[in-house]
Write a protein that binds this DNA or RNA. Sequence first.
DNA 1: GTCTATACGATGATAGAC
DNA 2: GTCTATCATCGTATAGAC
Lengths: 193, 193
Amino acid sequence: MYSEGVSTSERLIESTRELLWERGYVGTSPKAILERAEAGQGSMYHHFKGKPDLALAAIRRTAEELCATAEAVLGGPGTPYQRIEAYLRRERDVLRGCPIGRLTMDPDIIASDELRAPVDETLDRIRERIAGIVEEGKEQGQFAPSVDGEAIAATVLATVQGGYVLARASGSPAAFDAGVRGLLSLLAPDRPA
Amino acid sequence: MYSEGVSTSERLIESTRELLWERGYVGTSPKAILERAEAGQGSMYHHFKGKPDLALAAIRRTAEELCATAEAVLGGPGTPYQRIEAYLRRERDVLRGCPIGRLTMDPDIIASDELRAPVDETLDRIRERIAGIVEEGKEQGQFAPSVDGEAIAATVLATVQGGYVLARASGSPAAFDAGVRGLLSLLAPDRPA
DNA sequence: GTCTATACGATGATAGAC
DNA sequence: GTCTATCATCGTATAGAC
């Protein structure tokens, strides 16, 4: 499964990232992690203090990756509307859900300030980034002066996170796409009032 | 904890409903259910075939309750916009999340067509209800003829479901409220283009 | 209908050999 | 660094007494 040269702690983190995405924190056991990482128990407790410590390392990496993915489209070319559209329409594995957002439904994550922190920071940073872009669009006259960047940013992020919920409920990405389409139609600068 | 006169199977279903909301399916054990219901193991396996069977009964009841709560505001008085606003602004225990929507992040729920079905049906029914209201608003000239009722309905539902995610991540209902505010500002019939 | 006893694998972690 | 015991507890279910 794993090629040579990848360190054991690296394999442990990657396996944990996958399992947290698939099954969440409560649904992921050290045993499952070890099997996927092809490692023994000793390795895990040598490199990490336990399940929460390993999960924290995994979540932090996933959080950074998600921020980078978001920045790639939000910091890309185009008008403010186009950059937000690019964020909403970017390729996603919709039925897998958001690897960060899904953790908010995990009771043990929410109960731990340390585990919740990277989740909160990630969503907050993307929200602030979008809010700034909306404000930019207002200055350029693309959005009405009355719109509230912070509020619109929350709506954009919520539509994505909620889109995952609808898609997973129905077993099809269609509902995610519909939600995005609806939001874009409301945001469109040129739409008939 | 429980007053006299409430049947054991009733207590089992109610306890399961609470725990599914708090901890999800994977995070809820029969033992925890029994303790909360003040019942022994025998009772549970007498009334239900096992954990999935009891969970199904609990989910079905929660699904019905949620549909009724939604219908109470969506079928209420007012213009289409006002009814959608009432749905978005209705009182919610935001930090607890949606008792139905949260189940979509549970791997064992998604893996079982039987357990997923009531979740899917609930969200789909509410979505269709909102879509019809949007179409109604178009006929009355409150919404532009170009808007797509199905898409807007998905956006409305996604904003709510995603709002729970943002709120739980930050530990505050503020982000939920911001998302709702942003969406309503985009939907407002009289807003400046 | 409800209880207790029993079962067996899974969970999360420690100890100590190599 | 990694491995294999070993451990106490939990998770899910069955059996049978009352």
